[in-house]
Nucleic acid binder design. Structure first.
Length: 939
RNA sequence: GCCCGAGUGGCGGAAUGGCAGACGCAGCGGACUCAAAAUCCGCCGAUUUCACGAUCGUGUGGGUUCGAGUCCCACCUCGGGCACCA
């Protein structure tokens, strides 16, 4: 199970393409590319501008999801995606595109901090070491990055702008009419003019402090005292997206508790509609779009107000089925609902209080346990169904969640399975308001479950609304919504599952907030010229962590302890004042929300990106084009977190006029995982996969039988191979070819070390077709290539272009192998083809190709040579062989001229002996000739 | 439960509705060699046949079509996402 035996033996010819030779060649070309700045892409403006080189070339921005610089270095999944983008980038350069291709580092985050806590080493030091190591590894893979454009999110020159963007978001509000972010000054102007109403009172009458608090209500980044996910085991709060379905942290798998705390939030919910609607502009897979839509969870329905008998309050609910309102026979509030205390009658107070205590004690985990028996208690109160005036009981139950809608529902047990179960359990009324289409009838006492779907309405009318006779949900909803609105009982509403983004973390290794608080506790954004707010130095990196189950603990940020840093005297326009700095840091997602923009202009000191550079690389390419990165490749695990957050930031920047693209990533391609065999012993523990022996299909480890499984290659399954080891053994070109030839890029594929030799042999044959293994001299065939060889060459050119255009590297490589196998049979490569052959191969195996290119007599790199173009005359053959089917089965073959007409082809087919035998004298009823393809005779 | 994907030789995988299995691995045979390795040439879905060939074959069952791995319907299995979201 090692990476295979050493391929070289003692009598290997001196100039054979071996792993050792590949190493030499690769090191030489990597040095040369770096020294020559071969892959530096010119900008139209700013420090990296080179307008002469920009002129006449179309830009193309190819992006990988940038890695976290782990101490373990790159794992095999990285080169899988990186090599694919590199092949594409090299191909597009040879198509005369100006290709922006580089790599940065998502270097803030927990692992570096945890490592620092363990070792006492400052995370900045380990981060820098890890980045240096990974840069070396990227170079070893032969990736054609523009090294000048590389960034790290931890670099103050980078996070200065992360803080700057936060400041922009803080100083913005969302205009619900224009559905876009605007500057806070514009809100002030509207409030001053009275064209917009304040939410906390009368703007004109407010003092400056009240006005400040009013504005803080509107900001896109705001401080909120609301239920958040508190994770004592991590010592920090985490975002909704970072909590798994069973109520634990996705990092560390610690319990997470809902707690009210003051935290920074980002108003991503304001963008819910645009984040859904603009998915239509993107070239992403339907799967990822579906995951984003799902996460945002837009659902259309109605808000309905239910008066409560004997109270002034009304219970407001959200429903997606207002058309079923006639069937609402009870109501359910979440146990935490604020009206519970008011509505509960004395008689039921004890039961309600006990139920609420029990619900509170339960973690989210328990409440979400599926198939759980419905529980709940009656409050004693009755609400009034606004449609028919009926009194319906009000219950509380934990199947209604406070965090969705209004935390209260109208229960329609005939049409909702959950309500049905609840009604059955507690003996509440179930009334049919539709005539079910499955023939079960309208006597609900006989029903086994709720009826959900389109069906004619029954029992659904009052003096002014009659649904009876309508047959579809759409009609029923529309009619009911009109009635609710007309009678003041409600209105059509859209709700979202998406919550605002919890943006602060109580950790050390992250971007400090560019925020200070005045003596009254009001937040102030620091002016631009005070950025960056440097992360203060300390040797205490660890937040206080707690017993993972201690829900009542409170977060303590490491920055809290740095009193000298926290307390500052600043002049923010009112003369020197004492302020307290915000001691939170941003989540790791912050740095990755905009890194693609910084690649465009990485050294710009005046702006996060020069608008001219942004428009050039990422601007919309047509009237309905979103703009954005031309190709973004990365794993599907970022489907909702990174991709949603980054889209949100980008849209804010767009609204504020900083970028011209509506979306950051126009085309997204999700790569698969590299899987590998893993082995477990009798206890189910993973054993070192490389020490497992196989005999006759049985696997043993240290003599004991083990079970073979498949899993993502990695440390935890003890089956990880280091890509650098593969480079050392075969060379980077072989590793690149192997990774991309295993299967389509979007599929996960099992690593099989024994298969690597296949592409290695291909490179050896390629080399041997051009270089004499004994002398090292170029060895080509002097004779002009024959027609068949030219056809093979041009068909290969056309096919490889087609495959590369569609990111099908595996089939492109197969075509190149076919071409090379053809040349091998010829005994070598005709001299006239040699240049094209090398250029064809160069995106895939760039080092070997550069070396061969040089040996063929070309002094300069082939990185910018034009990629071969197929000559159409060699794509058509003189004759075509038609398979001839009789009744759908191939019975014979005929060869006819390529330009033969249908009648000629048919005549040739009918004349064939085997066809005549198969027909056995029968007269054809019909003959189908597909030109250039085949003939089918129906007898 | 709902929403996405995917099921093809011993294995990884190819196939605009038109010759299923390209290419690679493994395996088998041959050439070269004293021999082996490497290299080169050939074979390589199953059943059957001395052979030519024949029959079957892309998860299962139906359907559309002159023709289906590909399109439609139902189902099974596996993978991923969401899940008491009103």
């Amino acid at each position: 199970m090692t990476a295979t035996d050493a391929p070289d033996t003692a009598d290997t010819p001196a100039h054979r393409y071996t792993g050792a030779l590949a190493q030499q060649i690769e090191a030489r070309w990597q040095d040369r590319w770096e020294a020559d700045g071969t892959f530096e892409a010119p900008n139209p403006a700013g420090p990296l501008a080179d307008p002469a080189k920009v002129a006449g070339r179309q830009p193309m921005f190819i992006l990988d999801m940038f890695p976290y610089p782990s101490g373990a270095g790159l794992h095999m999944g990285h080169p899988l995606g990186f090599t694919a983008t590199d092949m594409y980038a090299r191909y597009q350069r040879m198509n005369d595109r100006n290709v922006l291709y580089t790599m940065g580092f998502d270097a803030f985050g927990l692992p570096a901090e945890q490592y620092a806590v363990q070792t006492g080493q400052h995370p900045a030091i380990t981060t820098d070491q890890n980045i240096a190591n990974i840069r070396r590894q990227l170079r070893r893979l032969g990736l054609s990055h523009d090294l000048r454009r590389s960034i790290s999110t931890t670099d103050p020159g980078y996070y200065r702008w992360t803080q700057w963007i936060f400041r922009e978001i803080f100083n913005a509000w969302f205009d619900p009419e224009l559905k876009k972010a605007r500057r806070i000054e514009e809100l002030v102007a509207e409030l001053d003019a009275g064209t917009r109403q304040a939410v906390t009172g009368d703007w004109a009458a407010m003092d400056p402090a009240a006005r400040r608090r009013e504005l803080d209500q509107w900001r896109l980044a705001y401080v909120s005292d609301a239920p958040v996910n508190w994770c004592p085991g991590l010592g920090t709060v985490v975002a909704n997206e970072e909590v798994t379905a069973d109520g634990r942290s996705d990092r560390g798998n610690f319990p997470v508790f809902k707690r009210n705390m003051r935290q920074w939030m980002m108003r991503i919910t304001a963008y819910a509609d645009r984040l859904i609607d603009d998915l239509d502009l993107l070239d992403w897979t339907d799967a990822i779009k579906a995951m984003q839509r799902n996460w945002i969870g837009r659902s259309e329905g109605a808000t309905v107000h239910f008066p409560v008998d004997g109270h002034d309050e009304t219970i407001t609910v959200f429903t997606t089925r207002p058309d079923t309102l006639f069937g609402a026979t009870f109501m359910v509030l979440a146990p935490e609902h604020p009206l519970v205390d008011t509505l509960t009658t004395a008689e039921h107070a004890n039961a309600v209080a006990a139920y609420r205590r029990a619900a509170e004690a339960k973690k989210d985990v328990d409440r979400q346990d599926e198939n759980r028996e419905k529980t709940g208690v009656f409050t004693g109160a009755y609400a009034v169904n606004p449609l028919n005036g009926q009194q319906i009981p009000v219950w509380i139950a934990d199947y209604v969640l406070m965090g969705y809608g209004y935390g209260a529902i109208m229960a329609v047990p005939c049409g909702d399975q959950r309500d049905f179960e609840f009604a059955r359990k507690f003996g509440l009324d179930i009334v049919a308001i539709q005539e079910p289409t499955d023939g079960r009838g309208t006597d609900c006492t006989t029903w086994a479950d709720a009826f959900v779907g389109d069906a004619p309405y029954v029992n659904s009318s009052n003096d002014s609304l009659d649904l009876n006779g309508l047959a579809t949900k759409a009609e029923g909803v529309a009619a009911t919504n009109r009635w609710l609105e007309g009678h003041g009982h409600g209105h059509a509403t859209i709700t979202y599952k998406l919550r605002d983004w919890l943006f602060s973390r109580q950790r050390y290794w992250g971007e400090p907030f560019p925020i200070v608080y005045d003596v009254d506790g009001n937040p102030h954004a620091l002016p631009e010229d005070m950025l960056p707010v440097l992360l203060p130095d300390t040797d205490q990196f660890s937040p206080r962590t707690f017993d993972p189950d201690d829900a009542m603990s409170n977060p303590e940020s490491p920055l809290d302890r740095l009193t000298d840093w926290v307390e500052v005297t600043l002049d923010l326009g009112d003369g020197p004042q004492v302020y307290r700095r915000d001691t939170n840091v941003m989540p790791q997602w912050a740095g990755s929300c905009w890194y693609e923009l910084r690649y465009l202009d990485p050294t710009n000191e005046q702006a996060f990106v020069d608008p001219a550079n942004e428009a050039y690389w990422m601007g919309p390419q047509g009237p309905d084009h979103s703009g954005g990165v031309d190709l973004y490749v990365g794993g599907v695990e970022h489907a909702v977190l990174h991709l949603l957050y980054a889209r949100f930031w980008h849209k804010v920047l767009f609204d504020l006029g900083h970028v011209s693209s509506v979306e950051p990533f126009h085309r997204l391609f999700n790569q698969g995982y590299v899987l590998a065999a893993a082995f477990t012993d009798e206890r189910g523990m993973y054993v070192d996969a490389f020490a497992v022996e196989e005999r006759d299909g049985q696997y043993t480890f240290e003599g004991r039988p083990v079970t073979r499984e498949y899993g993502k290659m990695g440390k935890s399954l003890k089956n990880a191979l280091d890509p650098m080891d593969l480079c050392a053994e075969y060379g980077a070109d072989t590793l690149r070819l192997y990774l991309e030839s295993m299967g389509p890029l979007d599929a996960s594929r099992p690593w099989e070390s024994k298969d690597v030799v296949g592409v290695y042999r291909f490179l050896q044959r390629l080399w041997r077709n051009l270089v004499d293994e004994e002398t090292g001299e170029v060895r080509t065939l002097a004779d002009a290539p024959g027609d068949e060889t030219l056809r093979v060459l041009h068909r290969t050119i056309a096919a490889v272009r087609e495959e590369l255009d569609n990111l099908r590297f595996n089939t492109a490589i197969a075509k190149l192998i076919e071409l090379n196998n053809h040349l091998t049979k010829l005994g070598g490569c005709p001299a006239a083809l040699a240049d094209d052959l090398v250029k064809l191969v160069s995106p895939f195996a760039p080092h070997a190709a550069e070396e061969l290119w040089g040996r063929l007599g070309h002094p300069t790199s082939l990185a910018y040579e034009p990629y071969p173009v197929a000559d159409p005359q060699w794509l058509v053959a003189d004759t075509v062989e038609y398979p001839v089917q009789v009744n759908g089965k191939v019975r014979g073959r005929v060869v006819v001229a390529a330009d033969a007409d249908t009648a000629t082809v048919e005549a040739a087919a009918m004349a064939d002996d085997k066809v005549q035998t198969a027909l056995a004298g029968a007269t054809p009823k019909k003959v189908i000739v597909v030109p250039g393809r085949m003939v089918n005779i129906v007898a």
